[in-house]
Design a protein around this nucleic acid. Structure first.
Lengths: 200, 200
DNA sequence: GTCGGTTACATACACAACGTATGTCGTATA
DNA sequence: TATACGACATACGTTGTGTATGTAACCGAC
Protein backbone atom coordinates (compact mmCIF):
# COMPACT_ATOMS: atom_id res chain seq x y z
CA UNK A 1 0.00 0.00 0.00
CA UNK A 2 2.01 2.91 1.31
CA UNK A 3 5.34 1.62 0.07
CA UNK A 4 8.19 3.85 -1.00
CA UNK A 5 6.70 7.08 0.23
CA UNK A 6 9.26 9.79 -0.01
CA UNK A 7 10.07 11.83 3.01
CA UNK A 8 8.47 14.79 1.38
CA UNK A 9 5.27 12.99 0.50
CA UNK A 10 5.02 11.84 4.07
CA UNK A 11 5.14 15.39 5.40
CA UNK A 12 2.59 16.45 2.85
CA UNK A 13 0.13 13.83 3.94
CA UNK A 14 0.72 14.76 7.53
CA UNK A 15 -0.26 18.37 6.98
CA UNK A 16 -3.30 17.27 5.01
CA UNK A 17 -4.34 14.98 7.82
CA UNK A 18 -3.67 17.70 10.37
CA UNK A 19 -5.84 20.09 8.40
CA UNK A 20 -8.63 17.54 8.33
CA UNK A 21 -8.34 16.98 12.05
CA UNK A 22 -8.33 20.68 12.86
CA UNK A 23 -11.26 21.31 10.55
CA UNK A 24 -13.17 18.44 12.12
CA UNK A 25 -12.71 19.91 15.57
CA UNK A 26 -13.79 23.37 14.53
CA UNK A 27 -16.74 22.23 12.45
CA UNK A 28 -17.94 20.01 15.28
CA UNK A 29 -17.74 22.69 17.93
CA UNK A 30 -18.37 25.96 16.08
CA UNK A 31 -20.29 24.76 13.06
CA UNK A 32 -19.58 25.32 9.39
CA UNK A 33 -20.41 28.99 9.23
CA UNK A 34 -18.67 29.63 12.53
CA UNK A 35 -15.26 28.40 11.51
CA UNK A 36 -12.96 30.41 9.29
CA UNK A 37 -10.24 28.83 7.21
CA UNK A 38 -7.86 31.31 8.74
CA UNK A 39 -8.42 29.72 12.14
CA UNK A 40 -8.21 26.18 10.81
CA UNK A 41 -4.86 26.98 9.25
CA UNK A 42 -3.67 28.73 12.37
CA UNK A 43 -4.47 25.63 14.41
CA UNK A 44 -1.70 23.78 12.63
CA UNK A 45 0.52 26.87 12.42
CA UNK A 46 0.02 27.34 8.71
CA UNK A 47 -1.85 29.81 6.53
CA UNK A 48 -4.91 29.64 4.34
CA UNK A 49 -2.60 28.96 1.44
CA UNK A 50 -2.06 25.48 2.77
CA UNK A 51 -5.77 24.89 3.02
CA UNK A 52 -6.38 25.99 -0.55
CA UNK A 53 -3.50 23.92 -1.76
CA UNK A 54 -5.05 20.73 -0.41
CA UNK A 55 -8.73 21.56 -0.83
CA UNK A 56 -10.34 23.52 -3.59
CA UNK A 57 -12.76 25.38 -1.33
CA UNK A 58 -14.16 25.58 2.16
CA UNK A 59 -16.98 23.38 1.04
CA UNK A 60 -14.57 20.80 -0.34
CA UNK A 61 -12.80 20.72 3.00
CA UNK A 62 -16.09 20.12 4.76
CA UNK A 63 -16.98 17.39 2.30
CA UNK A 64 -13.72 15.61 3.01
CA UNK A 65 -14.41 15.75 6.75
CA UNK A 66 -17.99 14.68 6.20
CA UNK A 67 -17.11 11.73 4.00
CA UNK A 68 -14.45 10.47 6.37
CA UNK A 69 -16.96 10.37 9.19
CA UNK A 70 -19.74 8.87 7.11
CA UNK A 71 -17.57 6.20 5.58
CA UNK A 72 -16.50 4.99 8.98
CA UNK A 73 -19.95 5.16 10.54
CA UNK A 74 -21.58 3.44 7.61
CA UNK A 75 -19.13 0.61 7.47
CA UNK A 76 -19.80 -0.10 11.10
CA UNK A 77 -23.56 0.01 10.66
CA UNK A 78 -23.36 -2.33 7.68
CA UNK A 79 -21.15 -4.71 9.62
CA UNK A 80 -23.55 -4.72 12.53
CA UNK A 81 -26.45 -5.41 10.19
CA UNK A 82 -24.63 -8.30 8.57
CA UNK A 83 -24.77 -10.18 11.87
CA UNK A 84 -28.55 -10.39 11.80
CA UNK A 85 -30.17 -13.76 11.14
CA UNK A 86 -32.86 -12.31 8.90
CA UNK A 87 -33.56 -9.00 7.20
CA UNK A 88 -35.67 -7.77 10.08
CA UNK A 89 -33.06 -8.42 12.73
CA UNK A 90 -30.37 -7.02 10.47
CA UNK A 91 -32.22 -3.73 10.18
CA UNK A 92 -32.66 -3.46 13.93
CA UNK A 93 -29.00 -4.22 14.60
CA UNK A 94 -27.92 -1.60 12.09
CA UNK A 95 -30.33 0.86 13.68
CA UNK A 96 -28.79 0.26 17.08
CA UNK A 97 -25.32 0.82 15.73
CA UNK A 98 -26.48 4.00 14.01
CA UNK A 99 -27.92 5.38 17.21
CA UNK A 100 -24.64 4.61 18.94
CA UNK A 101 -22.77 6.56 16.30
CA UNK A 102 -25.04 9.54 16.75
CA UNK A 103 -24.11 9.62 20.41
CA UNK A 104 -20.67 10.69 19.25
CA UNK A 105 -21.03 14.47 19.22
CA UNK A 106 -18.56 14.90 16.39
CA UNK A 107 -20.38 12.55 14.07
CA UNK A 108 -23.82 13.73 15.09
CA UNK A 109 -23.08 17.39 14.80
CA UNK A 110 -21.13 17.35 11.56
CA UNK A 111 -23.17 14.83 9.63
CA UNK A 112 -26.69 15.48 10.91
CA UNK A 113 -26.66 19.09 11.98
CA UNK A 114 -24.01 20.87 9.94
CA UNK A 115 -24.22 18.65 6.88
CA UNK A 116 -27.43 19.98 5.39
CA UNK A 117 -26.41 23.46 6.40
CA UNK A 118 -23.00 23.40 4.77
CA UNK A 119 -23.91 21.51 1.62
CA UNK A 120 -27.47 22.64 1.22
CA UNK A 121 -30.26 20.18 1.71
CA UNK A 122 -30.37 18.73 -1.80
CA UNK A 123 -26.62 18.25 -2.05
CA UNK A 124 -26.63 16.73 1.40
CA UNK A 125 -29.25 14.17 0.42
CA UNK A 126 -27.30 13.49 -2.73
CA UNK A 127 -24.15 12.88 -0.70
CA UNK A 128 -26.11 10.65 1.62
CA UNK A 129 -27.06 8.40 -1.27
CA UNK A 130 -23.66 6.83 -0.80
CA UNK A 131 -24.00 6.50 2.94
CA UNK A 132 -26.82 6.33 5.42
CA UNK A 133 -29.54 7.00 2.89
CA UNK A 134 -28.27 4.30 0.58
CA UNK A 135 -27.96 1.90 3.48
CA UNK A 136 -31.51 2.52 4.60
CA UNK A 137 -32.73 1.98 1.08
CA UNK A 138 -31.09 -1.41 0.91
CA UNK A 139 -32.57 -2.48 4.23
CA UNK A 140 -36.03 -1.39 3.17
CA UNK A 141 -35.70 -3.23 -0.10
CA UNK A 142 -34.55 -6.38 1.66
CA UNK A 143 -37.40 -6.17 4.12
CA UNK A 144 -39.94 -5.64 1.39
CA UNK A 145 -38.57 -8.26 -1.00
CA UNK A 146 -38.20 -10.71 1.86
CA UNK A 147 -41.90 -10.42 2.49
CA UNK A 148 -41.52 -8.81 5.90
CA UNK A 149 -43.46 -5.71 4.91
CA UNK A 150 -46.79 -5.09 3.32
CA UNK A 151 -46.21 -3.49 -0.11
CA UNK A 152 -44.65 -0.03 0.15
CA UNK A 153 -43.22 2.47 -2.33
CA UNK A 154 -39.45 2.23 -1.97
CA UNK A 155 -38.38 5.84 -2.36
CA UNK A 156 -41.00 7.38 -0.12
CA UNK A 157 -40.55 4.73 2.52
CA UNK A 158 -36.82 5.28 2.46
CA UNK A 159 -37.21 9.03 2.81
CA UNK A 160 -39.59 8.57 5.69
CA UNK A 161 -37.29 6.16 7.48
CA UNK A 162 -34.41 8.48 6.80
CA UNK A 163 -36.42 11.31 8.31
CA UNK A 164 -36.87 9.28 11.48
CA UNK A 165 -33.17 8.56 11.64
CA UNK A 166 -32.52 12.24 11.12
CA UNK A 167 -34.78 13.14 14.00
CA UNK A 168 -32.95 10.67 16.20
CA UNK A 169 -29.55 11.81 14.99
CA UNK A 170 -30.30 15.47 15.52
CA UNK A 171 -31.84 14.89 18.91
CA UNK A 172 -28.88 12.84 20.07
CA UNK A 173 -26.38 15.27 18.61
CA UNK A 174 -28.05 18.17 20.38
CA UNK A 175 -28.52 16.37 23.68
CA UNK A 176 -26.24 16.46 26.70
CA UNK A 177 -24.14 13.35 27.30
CA UNK A 178 -26.19 12.39 30.35
CA UNK A 179 -29.46 12.37 28.43
CA UNK A 180 -28.18 10.35 25.50
CA UNK A 181 -28.64 6.81 26.83
CA UNK A 182 -32.27 7.41 27.72
CA UNK A 183 -33.04 9.19 24.47
CA UNK A 184 -31.30 6.49 22.51
CA UNK A 185 -33.38 3.74 24.03
CA UNK A 186 -36.58 5.70 23.57
CA UNK A 187 -35.89 6.17 19.88
CA UNK A 188 -34.94 2.57 19.41
CA UNK A 189 -38.11 1.37 21.06
CA UNK A 190 -40.36 3.81 19.23
CA UNK A 191 -38.95 3.16 15.78
CA UNK A 192 -39.21 -0.57 16.27
CA UNK A 193 -42.83 -0.23 17.33
CA UNK A 194 -43.65 2.08 14.45
CA UNK A 195 -42.21 -0.37 11.98
CA UNK A 196 -44.60 -3.05 13.16
CA UNK A 197 -47.29 -0.93 11.54
CA UNK A 198 -45.79 -1.89 8.17
CA UNK A 199 -45.29 -5.52 9.05
CA UNK A 200 -46.80 -8.12 6.76
CA UNK B 1 -58.11 48.03 14.25
CA UNK B 2 -56.37 50.03 11.56
CA UNK B 3 -58.26 53.22 12.21
CA UNK B 4 -56.78 56.66 11.83
CA UNK B 5 -53.65 55.59 10.02
CA UNK B 6 -51.82 58.60 8.77
CA UNK B 7 -50.88 58.83 5.16
CA UNK B 8 -47.27 58.46 6.12
CA UNK B 9 -47.81 55.39 8.26
CA UNK B 10 -49.64 53.80 5.40
CA UNK B 11 -46.71 54.26 3.05
CA UNK B 12 -44.38 52.92 5.69
CA UNK B 13 -46.36 49.76 6.09
CA UNK B 14 -46.49 49.35 2.35
CA UNK B 15 -42.73 49.40 2.00
CA UNK B 16 -42.41 46.98 4.88
CA UNK B 17 -44.89 44.65 3.25
CA UNK B 18 -43.15 45.03 -0.09
CA UNK B 19 -39.85 44.14 1.52
CA UNK B 20 -41.38 41.04 3.06
CA UNK B 21 -42.85 40.03 -0.27
CA UNK B 22 -39.62 40.56 -2.15
CA UNK B 23 -37.64 38.72 0.50
CA UNK B 24 -40.13 35.85 0.41
CA UNK B 25 -39.70 35.50 -3.33
CA UNK B 26 -35.92 35.55 -3.17
CA UNK B 27 -35.64 33.24 -0.18
CA UNK B 28 -38.01 30.78 -1.83
CA UNK B 29 -36.19 30.70 -5.14
CA UNK B 30 -32.56 31.37 -4.29
CA UNK B 31 -32.40 30.30 -0.66
CA UNK B 32 -31.25 32.24 2.36
CA UNK B 33 -27.54 32.27 1.58
CA UNK B 34 -28.22 32.98 -2.07
CA UNK B 35 -30.10 36.21 -1.56
CA UNK B 36 -28.39 39.47 -0.70
CA UNK B 37 -30.17 42.30 1.04
CA UNK B 38 -28.93 44.55 -1.72
CA UNK B 39 -31.03 42.63 -4.21
CA UNK B 40 -34.07 42.48 -1.96
CA UNK B 41 -33.94 46.25 -1.59
CA UNK B 42 -33.37 46.74 -5.31
CA UNK B 43 -36.49 44.70 -6.03
CA UNK B 44 -38.60 47.44 -4.50
CA UNK B 45 -36.33 50.21 -5.79
CA UNK B 46 -34.89 51.02 -2.40
CA UNK B 47 -31.54 50.51 -0.70
CA UNK B 48 -30.30 48.32 2.11
CA UNK B 49 -30.94 51.23 4.42
CA UNK B 50 -34.65 50.57 4.13
CA UNK B 51 -34.16 46.93 4.99
CA UNK B 52 -32.11 47.71 8.08
CA UNK B 53 -34.61 50.31 9.13
CA UNK B 54 -37.43 47.78 9.24
CA UNK B 55 -35.50 44.68 10.27
CA UNK B 56 -32.56 44.48 12.60
CA UNK B 57 -30.65 41.93 10.54
CA UNK B 58 -30.87 39.58 7.60
CA UNK B 59 -31.82 36.85 10.01
CA UNK B 60 -34.61 38.97 11.48
CA UNK B 61 -35.97 39.55 7.99
CA UNK B 62 -35.99 35.83 7.37
CA UNK B 63 -37.69 35.19 10.69
CA UNK B 64 -40.44 37.63 9.78
CA UNK B 65 -41.00 35.85 6.48
CA UNK B 66 -40.84 32.49 8.19
CA UNK B 67 -43.31 33.39 10.90
CA UNK B 68 -45.81 34.85 8.47
CA UNK B 69 -45.84 31.61 6.53
CA UNK B 70 -45.93 29.37 9.56
CA UNK B 71 -48.67 31.31 11.28
CA UNK B 72 -50.90 30.98 8.27
CA UNK B 73 -50.13 27.32 7.62
CA UNK B 74 -50.54 26.38 11.24
CA UNK B 75 -53.83 28.08 11.68
CA UNK B 76 -55.18 26.16 8.73
CA UNK B 77 -53.85 22.85 10.01
CA UNK B 78 -55.34 23.49 13.44
CA UNK B 79 -58.68 24.38 11.89
CA UNK B 80 -58.65 21.24 9.79
CA UNK B 81 -57.88 19.16 12.86
CA UNK B 82 -60.71 20.73 14.82
CA UNK B 83 -63.19 19.14 12.43
CA UNK B 84 -62.24 15.62 13.47
CA UNK B 85 -64.69 13.62 15.52
CA UNK B 86 -62.02 12.16 17.78
CA UNK B 87 -58.34 12.76 18.47
CA UNK B 88 -57.27 10.18 15.96
CA UNK B 89 -59.27 11.59 13.12
CA UNK B 90 -58.27 15.11 14.07
CA UNK B 91 -54.61 14.20 13.75
CA UNK B 92 -55.13 12.66 10.33
CA UNK B 93 -57.06 15.65 9.06
CA UNK B 94 -54.38 18.02 10.27
CA UNK B 95 -51.77 15.82 8.62
CA UNK B 96 -53.60 16.03 5.33
CA UNK B 97 -53.81 19.79 5.55
CA UNK B 98 -50.12 19.94 6.40
CA UNK B 99 -49.19 17.89 3.37
CA UNK B 100 -51.27 20.20 1.23
CA UNK B 101 -49.39 23.19 2.60
CA UNK B 102 -46.08 21.59 1.79
CA UNK B 103 -47.13 21.31 -1.83
CA UNK B 104 -46.85 25.08 -1.95
CA UNK B 105 -43.23 25.52 -2.98
CA UNK B 106 -42.86 28.80 -1.11
CA UNK B 107 -43.98 27.36 2.19
CA UNK B 108 -42.13 24.10 1.71
CA UNK B 109 -38.88 25.64 0.68
CA UNK B 110 -38.71 28.45 3.19
CA UNK B 111 -40.00 26.65 6.25
CA UNK B 112 -38.70 23.12 5.72
CA UNK B 113 -35.62 23.56 3.60
CA UNK B 114 -34.23 27.02 4.29
CA UNK B 115 -35.53 27.32 7.84
CA UNK B 116 -33.07 25.05 9.60
CA UNK B 117 -30.35 26.32 7.32
CA UNK B 118 -30.93 30.00 8.01
CA UNK B 119 -31.67 29.80 11.71
CA UNK B 120 -29.53 26.83 12.60
CA UNK B 121 -31.20 23.61 13.62
CA UNK B 122 -31.63 24.34 17.30
CA UNK B 123 -33.05 27.82 16.78
CA UNK B 124 -35.30 26.45 14.08
CA UNK B 125 -36.73 23.83 16.42
CA UNK B 126 -37.14 26.49 19.06
CA UNK B 127 -39.06 28.66 16.61
CA UNK B 128 -41.14 25.67 15.64
CA UNK B 129 -42.28 25.23 19.23
CA UNK B 130 -44.85 27.88 18.44
CA UNK B 131 -45.91 26.29 15.20
CA UNK B 132 -45.81 22.86 13.64
CA UNK B 133 -43.77 21.29 16.41
CA UNK B 134 -46.08 22.61 19.07
CA UNK B 135 -49.10 21.46 17.11
CA UNK B 136 -47.72 17.97 16.73
CA UNK B 137 -46.98 17.84 20.43
CA UNK B 138 -50.58 18.67 21.27
CA UNK B 139 -51.90 16.03 18.91
CA UNK B 140 -49.61 13.40 20.37
CA UNK B 141 -50.61 14.33 23.88
CA UNK B 142 -54.29 14.17 22.98
CA UNK B 143 -53.84 10.80 21.34
CA UNK B 144 -51.93 9.43 24.29
CA UNK B 145 -54.17 10.87 26.97
CA UNK B 146 -57.23 9.79 25.03
CA UNK B 147 -56.02 6.24 25.26
CA UNK B 148 -55.46 5.87 21.53
CA UNK B 149 -51.78 5.05 21.92
CA UNK B 150 -49.83 2.61 23.98
CA UNK B 151 -47.72 4.56 26.49
CA UNK B 152 -45.06 6.66 24.79
CA UNK B 153 -42.57 9.33 25.92
CA UNK B 154 -44.00 12.63 24.76
CA UNK B 155 -40.89 14.53 23.71
CA UNK B 156 -39.23 11.75 21.79
CA UNK B 157 -42.45 10.74 20.10
CA UNK B 158 -43.04 14.32 19.09
CA UNK B 159 -39.55 14.67 17.68
CA UNK B 160 -39.96 11.45 15.75
CA UNK B 161 -43.31 12.48 14.33
CA UNK B 162 -41.87 15.86 13.52
CA UNK B 163 -39.02 14.13 11.72
CA UNK B 164 -41.52 12.28 9.57
CA UNK B 165 -43.33 15.48 8.75
CA UNK B 166 -39.99 17.05 7.91
CA UNK B 167 -39.20 14.24 5.50
CA UNK B 168 -42.55 14.71 3.84
CA UNK B 169 -42.22 18.47 3.76
CA UNK B 170 -38.74 18.36 2.31
CA UNK B 171 -39.64 15.76 -0.25
CA UNK B 172 -42.68 17.69 -1.38
CA UNK B 173 -40.82 20.97 -1.44
CA UNK B 174 -38.06 19.48 -3.56
CA UNK B 175 -40.37 17.61 -5.92
CA UNK B 176 -41.70 18.80 -9.26
CA UNK B 177 -45.33 19.90 -9.33
CA UNK B 178 -46.36 16.83 -11.32
CA UNK B 179 -44.96 14.41 -8.77
CA UNK B 180 -46.49 16.09 -5.76
CA UNK B 181 -49.95 14.48 -5.74
CA UNK B 182 -48.52 10.97 -5.87
CA UNK B 183 -45.85 11.69 -3.25
CA UNK B 184 -48.40 13.33 -1.04
CA UNK B 185 -50.68 10.32 -1.05
CA UNK B 186 -47.79 7.94 -0.48
CA UNK B 187 -46.69 9.86 2.59
CA UNK B 188 -50.19 10.11 3.93
CA UNK B 189 -50.73 6.40 3.57
CA UNK B 190 -47.37 5.43 5.02
CA UNK B 191 -47.56 7.70 8.04
CA UNK B 192 -51.04 6.49 8.84
CA UNK B 193 -49.89 2.90 8.63
CA UNK B 194 -46.83 3.55 10.74
CA UNK B 195 -48.94 5.15 13.43
CA UNK B 196 -50.98 1.98 13.78
CA UNK B 197 -47.82 0.47 15.24
CA UNK B 198 -48.35 2.69 18.27
CA UNK B 199 -52.05 2.11 18.49
CA UNK B 200 -53.47 0.85 21.75
C1' DG C 1 -47.84 79.11 8.82
C1' DT C 2 -43.63 77.98 10.72
C1' DC C 3 -40.75 75.66 13.72
C1' DG C 4 -38.60 71.78 16.37
C1' DG C 5 -38.57 67.10 16.65
C1' DT C 6 -39.20 62.63 14.79
C1' DT C 7 -39.60 59.17 11.19
C1' DA C 8 -38.02 56.83 6.98
C1' DC C 9 -35.06 56.17 4.51
C1' DA C 10 -30.10 56.91 1.65
C1' DT C 11 -25.11 57.18 1.74
C1' DA C 12 -20.67 56.01 3.22
C1' DC C 13 -17.67 53.29 5.74
C1' DA C 14 -15.52 49.51 8.56
C1' DC C 15 -14.84 44.70 8.80
C1' DA C 16 -14.81 39.79 7.96
C1' DA C 17 -14.30 36.00 5.05
C1' DC C 18 -13.72 33.66 0.67
C1' DG C 19 -11.21 32.89 -3.36
C1' DT C 20 -7.26 33.77 -6.63
C1' DA C 21 -2.99 35.15 -8.51
C1' DT C 22 1.64 35.24 -7.71
C1' DG C 23 5.94 34.57 -5.30
C1' DT C 24 9.40 31.63 -2.84
C1' DC C 25 11.89 27.94 -1.04
C1' DG C 26 13.08 23.24 -0.66
C1' DT C 27 13.44 18.85 -2.77
C1' DA C 28 13.56 15.26 -6.36
C1' DT C 29 15.43 14.34 -10.91
C1' DA C 30 18.23 14.38 -15.06
C1' DT D 1 24.80 20.90 -10.55
C1' DA D 2 21.04 22.84 -13.15
C1' DT D 3 16.20 22.65 -13.52
C1' DA D 4 11.57 21.63 -12.88
C1' DC D 5 7.98 20.83 -9.79
C1' DG D 6 5.52 20.55 -5.59
C1' DA D 7 4.12 22.73 -1.07
C1' DC D 8 3.20 26.16 0.79
C1' DA D 9 3.11 31.78 2.01
C1' DT D 10 1.83 36.47 0.70
C1' DA D 11 -0.90 39.92 -1.29
C1' DC D 12 -4.90 41.38 -3.44
C1' DG D 13 -9.71 41.74 -5.25
C1' DT D 14 -14.46 40.91 -4.28
C1' DT D 15 -18.69 40.25 -1.90
C1' DG D 16 -21.75 40.75 1.71
C1' DT D 17 -23.06 42.12 6.36
C1' DG D 18 -23.66 45.55 9.82
C1' DT D 19 -23.16 50.38 11.55
C1' DA D 20 -22.77 55.30 11.75
C1' DT D 21 -24.13 59.36 9.84
C1' DG D 22 -26.66 62.42 6.83
C1' DT D 23 -31.11 64.31 4.91
C1' DA D 24 -35.57 65.26 3.43
C1' DA D 25 -40.34 64.76 4.36
C1' DC D 26 -43.88 64.84 7.66
C1' DC D 27 -46.45 65.76 12.05
C1' DG D 28 -48.00 68.33 15.93
C1' DA D 29 -47.72 72.60 18.86
C1' DC D 30 -47.82 77.38 19.17
Amino acid sequence: MSTAKSRRDQFTEETRAALLAAATRRFATLGFAGTSLEDVAADIRATRGAVYHHFSSKRALFEAVFQDLERNANDRAAEAGALGADAWQAALLALEEFLDQCCDPVYGRIVWLEGPLALGWTAWIEAEQNFAYGLVERFIRDLRDGGHLTPVPLTTTTQLAFGMLGAAGQALAAATPEERPRIRSEYLDLIARLLTGLRA
